[in-house]
């Protein structure tokens, strides 16, 4: 494997966004890119990352290799990379380490780290292609704000999506709160759009602790997409350049 990123920032942010949800995971490398799928310990949430080969310049991977990585250790190594550094990830055929090289833009500094790999026997879930009943795109910063505000009221949020908009409701001991985002297009700045497509109304409840955790990915994308169908897990997607993505799945709460 040899994969070079123009800026370490992307990889630093991806790892930062998932390291509190999953501790150990395989980065599955093959000629299409670097993929990761891992569930949290409680089996309530799942993270699915895809960094396509086109994300890297260049990308080369001659055969499938899983790189079993302790994300806490990887975070320590990535601290040594500045956001603007060129990052190269390298690995041999049957590796016991992964090699990370950080180069300053002006090429007067080269840092090189070897991170020990681990054998991880990971459960892999098959996630079917789903036609969701409702899809809502909104500014990622708005979603983060709504989740953190409502977490102060309750540990659970009910998300209701209709043609008019998407409503987040929390009921807690101190009272209730709700936030509605109405569909609109911002002609000056499409990053501010709220876009809803719906085949049927949806209402589901989720844990805010997990949703606020997913929001650690906010810096990766201006917009976030929520995909919902009644009685199936929510998908929260942060789309990245070159068809790469960071997706989170969260099991719905069951009614009282």
């Amino acid at each position: 494997l040899e994969a070079r990123l123009e800026a370490a920032d992307l990889f630093k942010k991806v790892v930062e966004a998932i390291k509190d949800l999953v501790q150990h995971c395989n980065f599955d490398c093959n000629d299409s890119g670097i993929a990761l799928q891992a569930m949290d310990n409680s089996h309530v949430a799942l993270v699915s990352m895809m960094l396509t080969a086109d994300t890297f310049t260049p990308f080369r991977c001659d055969r499938n290799i899983p790189l079993g990585i302790d994300l806490t250790s990887l975070t320590k190594v990535l601290r040594a990379a500045q956001s603007s550094d060129i990052l190269t990830i390298k690995s041999e055929d049957a590796p016991d380490v992964v090699n990370l090289v950080f180069e300053g833009k002006d090429q007067d500094r080269i840092s090189e780290y070897d991170l020990k790999l681990m054998d991880i026997d990971q459960e892999h879930l098959g996630i079917p292609d789903t036609e969701y009943a409702a899809t809502a795109s909104m500014p990622a910063a708005d979603f983060k704000r709504i989740c953190s505000d409502l977490l102060l009221i309750s540990e659970a949020v009910s998300i209701e999506c209709t043609k008019e908009g998407i409503t987040f409701k929390a009921e807690g001991d101190i009272g209730n709160g709700s936030v509605t985002l109405r569909q609109h297009s911002d002609l000056e700045n499409s990053d501010k759009n709220v876009d809803i497509s719906l085949t049927e109304p949806v209402a589901l409840s989720f844990s805010l602790k997990y949703l606020t955790g997913f929001c650690k990915a906010t810096g990766l994308s201006n917009q976030v997409r929520l995909c919902l169908s009644n009685d199936v897990p929510l998908m929260v997607e942060y789309a990245l350049a070159n068809n790469s993505y960071l997706r989170f799945y969260l099991a719905p709460k069951i009614g009282d």
């Binding site: 949430a45 996630i127 659970a156 409840s205 199936v232 897990p233 799945y249 009614g255």
Partner: peptide
């Protein structure tokens, strides 16, 4: 508070 589902009820292991 509603109970929390388990993801593996929705997605089969592969």
């Amino acid at each position: 508070t509603p109970l929390q589902n388990d993801l593996s009820e929705f997605f089969a292991m592969v």
